[in-house]
Amino acid sequence: MKEGRRYGIIGIAVCLMAAGVWVVGEITGQATSAGVTVAASEAVTTAPLSHQEGQFIPLGQPLRTAPSPRSSRDFDRYYELRAYDGAPPAIPHPVATEQAANDGCSGCHQYGGWAPEFAAEAPRTPHPELSACRQCHVPQRTEELFRSTTWQRRSPPEIHLAALPTSPPPIPHELQMRENCLGCHGASAVPELRTTHPERPGCLQCHVPQAPAGTWSRGGGAP
């Protein structure tokens, strides 16, 4: 059983308070089946669609969003490819060659979009200025391990921590290497992370980073 699914967390509303719902992001699938309204998966469809049969359409500006009915990626898979929230994800698809550090990665990942070759939404890189992709992203050639590990995966950050039901939720993760929000929240994102209002480009105007308590501080200045 996948780690993300291991928790059967359900919300039972007392009385008939349908408006007051606690959403636990990582188990949205089960939560839905348990009859709880899940705001996160209700992505608003705005034309035009990013995917069309048989061709790859890179997403330039302006930004569009659309849930992909055929995307193989979901929230669990998103975290499965990462050792921890913020780790560079492994490459989940075959690669053409080992020889170059950037073997046409940017063809699909510079803007993201539907990649018919893999029948998947190609996520958009949040750091297109870095060109040696294979420095950090590696394919997985085997499922096996050399020796087993006692690594404990940290739970993904909690989401929907808005102070009020109508206020924009704060950003629950670090922004380093993820300065471009559309990498994970744009049209090609997994449904749970997709923005509902891509026409508003100034994300940080309303969504503010939530600094963790007890941040390490260096004290003296850097040289």
Binding site: R141, E144, L145, T149, W151
Partner: peptide
């Protein structure tokens, strides 16, 4: 080699 992603790659 004891780092899963590195061994698998």
């Amino acid at each position: 080699r004891r780092v899963p992603i590195l061994h698998r790659a």
